[in-house]
Simulated assay, not measured.
Amino acid sequence: MRFLIIIPAHNEEENLPFTLDSLQQQSFKDFKIVVVNDGSTDQTQEIIRKYTDSDPRFETVDLQKSAHQPGSKVVNAFKNGLRTQNTNEFDIICKFDADIILPENYLETVRNAFKNNPEYGLVGGLLYVEKEGSWVYEGNSNKHHVRGPLKAYRRECFVQIGGLRETLGWDNIDSILLENLGWKEIVLPELHVKLIKVKGADYTIRPADYYGRYFYFLGLNRFLAYVASAKEAAKSKSIPFFFKIIKAYEACKANQLELKISKEEQKAINDKRWKMLKKKWLKM
């Protein structure tokens, strides 16, 4: 099985060498890497060139800087890299971030998981962040969800879900759609991936606006969006936070902002969320 790995990168001169070195050191060697330089103003381009000049498995794409918004920017860069390749030449399509360090057996373990389990559509490890000198589990999501920085899709699954959506919530939309099509999302807990910097630290969007927009672009109906908003407000122990999230969600709805999912996909997402709600809270 052969990997195609797309890595969007914007001003990652400090982190990117760790990511690319960890890929060069993989026990499994059959891969191609496309690093998409998304308008970097630091030395990112020069760092990429060191790898493309010395290793034929590395390629690069240069873009003008796109607006830094959660979801859309990184997926736009990913798609630009993907368009330069013939995906039929690969079995596994990966979207990796430019600030992760993979264990040496990462690709080999993922390859074996796909090879031995034809129902697997999305596979990944767990993210760990440095805290007080130790690497600890990131904990931003449940341990059954493959996080955005380390997505690996079986090509057939990737094609069936229509690829990645250029929108906030893309890394949850993919999970729901592939499961709806009968594929499985699998986390391999033995694969510890180091995340060098905290996700979302450079977004300019305010937390309440983020969640309101996220719930809207995920396609949640009003009831489920309000339930999700209440959950986030409870975490923050702030009633005003709930109303701020709702305000952002309703503003998107009033402006009829374009969703990147079809009506059928939106229904599948809401059905999945409703089943999760009944299972967890209503014990049904």
Rank of each mutant, 00 (worst) to 15 (best):
R154H: 12
W170F: 15
R111L: 06
I161F: 07
N117M: 07
W170N: 11
Y153L: 08
Y137C: 12
G133D: 09
G212Q: 05
W135K: 06
S134N: 15
Y203M: 02
I205F: 08
A208W: 07
A113D: 06
T109V: 14
E166P: 09
L168R: 05
F114P: 03
V136W: 03
K143T: 12
I173Q: 08
E108I: 04
N172Q: 11
K197I: 11
S141K: 13
N142D: 15
K194Q: 13
E166I: 10
Q160I: 07
N142T: 13
G121T: 05
V123Q: 04
G124I: 07
P149N: 07
K115I: 09
F158H: 11
H192A: 02
I205Q: 13
T109Y: 04
E108T: 09
E179R: 14
S175T: 09
Y211N: 10
G163K: 07
V110T: 11
Y211G: 01
L188T: 04
G125S: 14
L107V: 07
N172I: 00
V198S: 11
A201W: 05
G200M: 08
V123F: 11
D174N: 12
F158P: 06
F158G: 02
F215L: 14
L126F: 01
L122I: 09
F114E: 04
L122H: 12
S175R: 11
T204I: 10
L107E: 07
G182M: 06
D171I: 05
D209E: 15
H192L: 01
G163S: 05
K151T: 09
W170P: 01
I186W: 01
I186Q: 08
I196A: 06
L164M: 12
L107M: 13
V123P: 03
G163Y: 03
R155P: 08
R165P: 02
W183Q: 04
E179K: 13
R147T: 14
F215I: 00
T109A: 13
G219T: 05
N140Y: 14
I186K: 12
D209C: 01
I176L: 04
F215V: 04
P118I: 12
F114D: 04
E179I: 02
